Simulated assay, not measured.
Amino acid sequence: MSRKKIAILISGRGSNMGALISAAMDPSFPAEISLVLSNRPDAKGLQRAQDFGIPTAVVDHKDFGGDREAFEKSVDEILKANKIDIVVLAGFMRILSPYLVNAWAGRMINIHPALLPSFKGLATHERALEEGVKLHGATVHFVSAEMDDGPIIIQGAVPVLDHDTPDSLAARVLGVEHKIYPKALELVASGKAKVKGGTKVTTGDTAEATAPLIWP
Score class of each variant (00 low, 15 high):
2 S>A: 13
2 S>F: 14
3 R>M: 00
3 R>P: 03
5 K>D: 10
5 K>I: 04
8 I>K: 01
11 S>F: 00
11 S>Q: 01
13 R>E: 04
15 S>T: 12
16 N>H: 02
17 M>Q: 03
17 M>F: 10
18 G>Q: 15
20 L>R: 04
22 S>T: 15
23 A>V: 07
28 S>N: 15
28 S>H: 13
29 F>I: 08
32 E>S: 13
34 S>K: 12
38 S>Y: 03
39 N>T: 09
41 P>R: 11
44 K>P: 11
45 G>S: 05
46 L>M: 13
47 Q>D: 14
53 G>P: 06
57 A>P: 01
57 A>T: 02
57 A>E: 07
58 V>M: 06
59 V>L: 01
59 V>I: 04
62 K>C: 02
63 D>Q: 13
65 G>N: 02
69 E>W: 04
70 A>Q: 02
70 A>M: 03
72 E>Q: 04
73 K>N: 06
74 S>N: 10
76 D>I: 02
83 K>T: 04
83 K>E: 11
85 D>M: 01
86 I>V: 11
86 I>A: 05
89 L>N: 04
91 G>Q: 11
92 F>H: 01
93 M>I: 11
94 R>W: 08
102 N>T: 11
102 N>E: 14
102 N>R: 14
103 A>R: 15
104 W>G: 04
104 W>N: 04
107 R>V: 01
107 R>H: 11
111 I>T: 12
112 H>D: 12
118 S>R: 10
118 S>F: 11
123 A>C: 08
124 T>Q: 09
125 H>N: 06
127 R>Q: 14
128 A>C: 09
128 A>E: 10
138 A>P: 07
139 T>E: 07
140 V>W: 01
142 F>I: 09
143 V>K: 05
143 V>M: 08
143 V>R: 09
144 S>K: 14
145 A>K: 13
151 P>I: 07
152 I>W: 03
155 Q>K: 11
159 P>G: 10
160 V>P: 05
161 L>R: 14
166 P>A: 04
168 S>F: 12
168 S>A: 10
168 S>K: 11
170 A>R: 13
171 A>L: 09
172 R>G: 05
173 V>R: 05
174 L>F: 13
174 L>K: 13
175 G>I: 06
177 E>L: 03
177 E>I: 06
179 K>D: 06
183 K>M: 09
183 K>P: 01
183 K>N: 01
187 L>M: 14
188 V>G: 02
189 A>S: 04
190 S>F: 00
194 K>A: 02
197 G>W: 05
200 K>R: 15
200 K>T: 11
200 K>D: 12
204 G>R: 07
204 G>K: 07
205 D>R: 07
209 A>F: 12
209 A>G: 08
212 P>L: 05
214 I>V: 15
215 W>S: 15
